[in-house]
Design a binder for these strands. Structure first.
Lengths: 196, 196
DNA sequence: CTGTCATTTGACAGTAGCTATCAGAATTTC
DNA sequence: GAAATTCTGATAGCTACTGTCAAATGACAG
């Protein structure tokens, strides 16, 4: 019923234009050397508007909307599976929906995030949120408390595993199958107790 | 031969005074509500001097000097031990040298770091450095490359394990034995493949 | 189409973290 | 005690970020 009116379409457009122009300018002149003012001007809005869309300069690169997707897919998994298997499945389902363009965008963003300390630092704050999300979901499924040491440890390790995999993949120029394969390798390594 | 001259003593003193006054003011008025100017004034120096001792406001809490210690102790371990066992031993040796006052200081700092997002973000940058350090040491010991996926994954997991343990411990009021015990529990959980 | 209402936007002013520079003070060295 | 080195404080300036208010814009009822 609720058509995306003109107002909402314009908002999404502005958001994307800010992200794109920012990435372009960061690539071109470097992250630190690019000011909010320049990004806003390139996107044809005022600096005030930039801050209405992104709380910080870092967020124009780091922000994503995967958390709700993770929750949805996780809860649709059979409750019989072990948490780690359920999380493995979550990734397969998510990756399956990615287009090549999505993947290239992710790679570009991830490379930038791992190259710029400030972005990496900000990324962590998001990761912490994801970790707490996982903790709540896994806790409920296993009938434990989200504050339980082993739950916290488990979820932190999972997220670390994901992070290592995606950073290693981003350095290559492989497609989404390679990303999935690297994730699997890391999770298997974790499941085996991280032997060397 | 090289006596710690007056100049060097004063420097160390100023550094400690800045850290102490900063922690006190942060506790009292909150991290964001405390300015560099206030810290500098409380420590009896100018804001310029603050920045000569700490590159950022966050560093006055986050900065520590454990990395070189870790390297020393790790390299003094028998090369026959598995890397994970060697790292376990590193912690025991390090903890053994901590006084009760050290431990209380660590707890206070850790609590603040986990309570203030900006500090936690900065902490990660330090953690990344520690991770790369471990990667180099473990790589050399196992005859692999520091860029090897499994090496990177292993070291990232170890550091995550440490981080979870120390944050869980900091929430309690246990002593250093409890800290060591929590670390052991986490590392054992990791070694077992993080089962739930 | 028009007037009204809600939302979005831009301009402006201000705070604070951080950098660079430079003269003067303190400490070390000879 | 003089010269060389290092440390400090003052100043000026840039930029990220916040708060406020009036103008512009799209939504909607009549």
């Amino acid at each position: 019923m609720n058509r995306p009116g003109l107002r909402e379409r314009k908002k999404i457009e502005t958001l994307h234009r800010l992200q794109e122009e920012a990435l372009r300018l960061f690539d071109e002149h470097g992250y630190d050397a690019t000011t909010i003012e320049q990004i806003a001007e390139a996107a044809g809005v005022s600096p005030s508007t930039f801050y209405r869309y992104f709380p910080t300069k870092e967020d124009v690169v780091v922000q994503d909307e995967y958390d709700p997707l993770i929750v949805n897919v996780f809860e649709s998994q059979s409750a019989d599976d072990a948490p780690l298997d359920a999380l493995r499945a979550v990734l397969s389902v998510l990756f399956a929906e990615f287009t090549d363009a999505d993947i290239e965008r992710v790679r570009r963003r991830v490379r930038m995030i791992f190259a710029v300390p400030a972005l990496r630092a900000r990324q962590v704050q998001q990761t912490v949120a994801t970790e707490e999300l996982l903790a709540r979901m896994v806790a409920e499924r296993t009938g434990r408390s989200p504050g339980d040491l082993e739950i916290r440890h488990f979820t932190a390790l999972i997220v670390t595993s994901w992070t290592v995999a995606i950073s290693a993949w981003a350095e290559t120029d492989g497609g989404k199958d390679d990303l999935a394969a690297t994730m699997d390798r890391c999770l298997a390594h974790l499941e085996a107790g991280a032997p060397l």
